[in-house]
Write a protein that binds this DNA or RNA. Structure first.
Lengths: 155, 155
DNA sequence: ATTTACGGCACTGAATTGGTCCGATATGGT
DNA sequence: ACCATATCGGACCAATTCAGTGCCGTAAAT
């Protein structure tokens, strides 16, 4: 269904919560789990991954927890997705040369790369800071297009 | 990995081949399989699905085959993906209300919808006709952005 | 009638996903 | 010193999805 995995989604929501908290706030897995109404093991797992990806910094021991390494404005959704799911590649070939053995014969590679780039850009234009204040005043520039809101049939 | 399934990819490649053939050309599963160097069962399966999705018209019997229902210019990649994988929904909630039970508490829905729309738009802007002539002279308007080609770290 | 080709479906093995659990280690407090 | 609280790094598992195959029925051309 062309979707981001549920776990990645959790990860992003968790990060958004860090971004919404006071700057440099330190939060434990337990706190996050309670706040998000998600099972602790899941939250724990995701926070670990985010830490090992370098997006969160971990503080061990009692009174430990996690903290954002960078300011929310400097972390893009694209980056988070890449950290949790690997390269943003809609199809094999866009992950780099050598991934698809049809490479030579394939006639649609170039358009695919374009599409992939467009998706990448869309994800790159939204930062954690944008997610932290979802009732945005200023529209997310470059994402909004001129089509009417209702004119997007999704299925 | 945020990717389109391999089968869907096949489907798109097959459709592109139809688009590249003379207008209204009729091609059989066997021919397509040979031309694409893909196993016949797979090609057959995808063509069936594309036909039942209404993108191809099937002609049964000896000398049968498939044919594009619409002109390539009128078929978008978004449409094909939706036909083969269902709604283009990066995360549960963007597939419509009621899909995610976190709906009430979730703070990032609105930005997600924006992102999803952007991806949708990107896929909607490329038509089968664009895929059929991949060595494009004119750039695919609206997809290209100003960033330098090399400045797209994918991983 | 025979051959060619689609239609529908069932089925399989493999990989991925979503989620749990555990022992080890680090830290703060008493 | 000891204990409670946390993260760390795994392994682990069930359920789903993915990718691919096969079969039987039906339609059309010769």
């Amino acid at each position: 269904m062309l979707r981001i995995s549920k776990l990645t989604d959790y990860g992003i929501v968790l990060l958004a919560r860090f971004a919404a908290a006071p700057r440099d706030a330190q939060l434990s897995a337990r706190e996050m789990a309670e706040a998000s109404a998600l099972p602790l093991p899941v939250v724990s797992k995701m926070l670990k991954e985010l830490a090992s990806a370098g997006l969160l910094e971990s503080l061990r021991g009692a009174k430990g927890g996690y903290r954002l390494v960078r300011v929310p404005e400097a972390i893009t959704v694209a980056e988070i997705v890449r950290a949790l799911e690997g390269p943003i590649a809609l199809m094999e070939c866009t992950a780099g040369p050598g991934h698809c053995e049809q490479e030579a014969r394939c006639t649609v590679q170039e358009p695919w790369h374009r599409i992939n780039r467009a998706v990448n850009d869309a994800l790159s234009r939204v930062t954690l800071a944008d997610l932290a204040r979802p009732l945005v005043a200023k529209p997310l520039l470059g994402i909004e297009n001129s089509a009417a809101p209702a004119s997007h049939p999704n299925n």
